[in-house]
Design a protein around this nucleic acid. Sequence first.
DNA 1: TCGTTTGAGTAAATCGTTTTAGTAAGGAAT
DNA 2: ATTCCTTACTAAAACGATTTACTCAAACGA
Lengths: 357, 357
Amino acid sequence: MPRKRREKTEPNGRTVNGRTAVSLKQLAAHLGLSPTTLSLVLNDAPSASSIPEETKKRIFAAAKELKYRPNYLARSLRVQRTHTLGVLVPELSDGYSAMVLNGVEAALTNEGFFYLTASHLHRDDLLEKLPGVLIERQVEGIIAVDTPVRFEPNLPVVNVSGHDEIPGVTNVILNHQHAAELGIGHFFDLGHRKIAVLKGQTFSSDTEIRFDTIMKAALDRAIPIGKKLQQQLEGDLPSPEVGYAATKKLIATGEPFTALFAFNDISAIGAIRALEEDGMRVPEDVSVIGFDDIYGAAFHNPALTTIRQPLFEMGRLAAKTVLQELSGERNGNAESVLNVEPTLIIRQSTARVPKAH
Amino acid sequence: MPRKRREKTEPNGRTVNGRTAVSLKQLAAHLGLSPTTLSLVLNDAPSASSIPEETKKRIFAAAKELKYRPNYLARSLRVQRTHTLGVLVPELSDGYSAMVLNGVEAALTNEGFFYLTASHLHRDDLLEKLPGVLIERQVEGIIAVDTPVRFEPNLPVVNVSGHDEIPGVTNVILNHQHAAELGIGHFFDLGHRKIAVLKGQTFSSDTEIRFDTIMKAALDRAIPIGKKLQQQLEGDLPSPEVGYAATKKLIATGEPFTALFAFNDISAIGAIRALEEDGMRVPEDVSVIGFDDIYGAAFHNPALTTIRQPLFEMGRLAAKTVLQELSGERNGNAESVLNVEPTLIIRQSTARVPKAH
DNA sequence: TCGTTTGAGTAAATCGTTTTAGTAAGGAAT
DNA sequence: ATTCCTTACTAAAACGATTTACTCAAACGA
């Protein structure tokens, strides 16, 4: 049973269903006016002031009637602005990037901007290629989310959770010292002295400072964290699996600990599973702190105590910053770091150190 | 401390750092050739066969040296193809859309396509406006994810989890009968006869069939599900909160049940929390089945038994379908439904019905 | 009455490509 | 010696807007 719609597609790919999308020229012809006049009126240009209301009305009416929609491509080409950004992310389904993207979008839509997303999946070839492709498509700026910047930043570039100081790249980063203080401080206050740490995967831009600041905060409280209590996450699946595996290894060393500082919520969830499988209850036997506060952290069982990163806010800030550079309100060479603050969210995965210890 | 980079930004917004992005014309001038020749050679057009290797080499060399990158806008305008799709989603951070987007992207990147994402947040004004804006930007097709299609589909449109039969719109949908059979069948096999259901929010496109098929599957086994054992999710937060609230209400009715079929994993997680708060253990006292199998379902505590939707696959299929329509391999008016199959993933949130019942 | 405004528009260039339809020079064929 | 191919290119139109620099008529001022 054939259904109605596009009866035919022109060789050029343009759709013809009764009425092809009208161009300004066609609309002008229809009205017996020149495209110039229409453009002036439709865009409310200053020089349209001499055009009588009467004519303007006719133009608007015809535009509505024939469903005229300016071709953004043509306009962009002419005015040399695409109102489009490129966003580089490792992957979309890890909860982290999606939340940042949400913030990006919130900042962009009001300004009439859109964005092209490109996932590099931690693949070197894509990390090389994608920025160029985005630039070819005339994006006006690039937001790299947890992604190393390996291209010449000759357009506004903001790196969310980027830690390399690259001229021309603005980094939006969490105050990691503060985050580490909050986490370790919380453990310390609960009486924990044997703390283990899950270090992030090598490809994650936060891995190093998060680890270093945690070590420092612990040391400041005279709680050195030995080699045996450090485990690095391995594998690039955005699933709790990696935290699970790392925690298994941690347990296997035999070194006792009463608290575990996970790299993020996802790995904390995997860690808890591993701990419980080994007969250690959370938080009765071991306290666990996550990082990020993704959706779901609150509803995990036990609900995750975690260091919240304002991911939405970070995305929004990144986008706002690019927009400011574009509008000239901000100089791309100005201050290269924008800090955001973490919050300690105390839930059920942490408790006082067990008596035995 | 001023840093180096874009020393200056031209009034037109184009970057000038030493070397402006070169145009084909400039490259041609540099070589003493015409833009035509370069275009022919660079695109390896058939008529470039008469150009000697020597010249071709010069052209490629110069292009590389001056970092020539064709302006995609100009090209798109000329050839009337943007190689860009628009994707409409309710929200990015709910895990569902992100997963579908992942699949979309996987199908697109090999084909040189990109996509613009637009979230409508269930807002009517955005649902009206966004499709038009995407079309203005000359997207070649639209993928609507769990989003009603309220615009004229005069370009390829695929709706993921869309259930309205709209001429010209292809729906990618899960085989819900099968899904319901799997879930209710599983409960039945475990001995459950008192089954409660969480119905989705009204705005979700899957709400109706999912509910209807579940009711039907239950009835087929002579287990009618009374009004009191049905609760509808309310609120549009993509968080377990809504499942939690609905389950509280369910409990409040006093009607006993030993199994709960949640609308999705997120709400299942909230439901489990509510149940446990009320002293009912999962799965010992109540069995819970989720839907979707999002990341995290496996690592929830208890691990969620769930009906998996192949979300990645659905995204990929949607994108592939649009591409096929564009290439003419597929007629947009052909078969309007593409089915994908669910899988029952048995984990820890379901068990045999307790003896007492 | 002549020059100057003002009003109501328009022609043409432009953005950076692609593509169609050539051209001009040299050699081969007749 | 003329025609006809090749070879190696190029001019110009086109895509669909925006924008600069006009034109032409009527009205106004002196």
